[in-house]
Amino acid sequence: MEMTPENLTRHELIGLAVEVADSTNPSLTGISGRVVDETRNTLVVETKDGEKRVPKACARFTFTLPDGRRARVEGLVLESQPENRINKRVKRWKL
């Protein structure tokens, strides 16, 4: 499935370049690197300072897609187990 901003929330995120754009925890803002692992509530980002585990619920992520486009995603929308997120999960809310 081709990766577009529309299906980003249903796509595999491991391997994507990511930056934490905004977070309620200031020490997490600005973390940038590549996603190496994902759990239900966190993303593990490999940065030049090592691996950082970032909770999804308190952050907004800027993903860079393979075609160069960038999309900012609310972490709350991604919060689920990666294998379940691939199935259609339509949240009836706007942010």
Binding site: L8, R69, A71, V73, V90, W93
Partner: peptide
């Protein structure tokens, strides 16, 4: 302001 941004799907904003 929020409505002016381009939203690809709930919670996903195209930059």
């Amino acid at each position: 302001d929020k409505n002016r941004k381009s939203w690809a799907s709930p919670g996903v904003e195209i930059l």
